[in-house]
């Protein structure tokens, strides 16, 4: 019996979600990390009113990226250590379906963290971070970043120093996201028209990486 493509994607993402709902381990870890990071940034940068407005988009993205790195590492490490990945590969499933399923799960968790972070930062920094344009930028950025992250985590999970290697291998590749997303966010927060150009660039980069990762995923799991 061959499972349909969409059903397979949903099943894999749903499995991650159910595991998470039961243990609440990953999401709470990511959330606490994100909260800590925001607090640490406020202290470290001694954010006064002006500095806060300048730095807030950077704080948001650095926090999100590191929180998602945390999640990515754990999500793939779990699959790999418990042999789930091999089981998934044995199943008559399309490789891209596995990728999309894992990617959807990761993006969902990071997206949730972001959606909780935005109102919190609105309250803490006194900037309207709930602007629909900002929410859209955040989600697009996370989608692209998690696509790359899912592939890179699958790739580094089989190396010796996987926890250390994932950020090192991934950050340079993810910098195009960070750069464009921070500029777009800053543009939205300061009401500058240039946010559109940066958002388009971000969406373009996200799309390129999504397609590339989708194409390359089968090489990372096939051995």
């Amino acid at each position: 019996m061959k499972t349909s493509y969409v059903a397979a994607v949903l099943a894999i993402a749903g499995k991650d979600l159910r595991v998470e709902l039961r243990s609440r381990e990953l999401l709470s870890l990511m959330l606490i990390f994100a909260l800590l990071s925001i607090l640490v940034f406020s202290f470290a940068l001694e954010l006064d009113r002006v500095a806060r407005e300048e730095a807030v988009s950077g704080v948001l993205w650095v926090t999100l990226i590191f929180a998602s790195l945390l999640g990515l590492n754990r999500s793939l490490a779990q699959e790999y250590d418990q042999g789930n990945l091999d089981a998934l590969l044995l199943a008559p499933l399309s490789r891209t379906a596995i990728f999309i399923g894992k990617f959807a799960g990761n993006a969902l968790f990071t997206g949730l963290v972001a959606l909780l972070l935005l109102p919190l930062m609105t309250a803490l920094y006194g900037k309207n971070m709930l602007d629909p344009r900002l929410v859209l930028t955040t989600l697009v950025g996370i989608a692209g970043f998690c696509a790359l992250g899912t592939l890179m985590a699958t790739l580094t999970v089989k190396t010796r120093a996987r926890e250390a290697l994932l950020p090192v291998a991934m950050m340079p590749l993810a910098l195009p996201f960070l750069l464009t997303a921070v500029r777009a966010t800053k543009g939205i927060l300061t009401n500058a028209t240039e946010w559109q150009a940066w958002f388009q660039l971000l969406a373009g980069v996200a799309l390129i990486y999504l397609v590339l990762c989708l194409l390359l995923f089968r090489f990372v799991v096939e051995e």
Binding site: K158, A169, P172, L173, I208, L216, F219
Partner: peptide, 16 residues
Amino acid sequence: RRRTFMSVYSILGFVT
């Protein structure tokens, strides 16, 4: 494994 994985990485890296 290194051969395959580094090939994937070199393709991704070329985007930069």
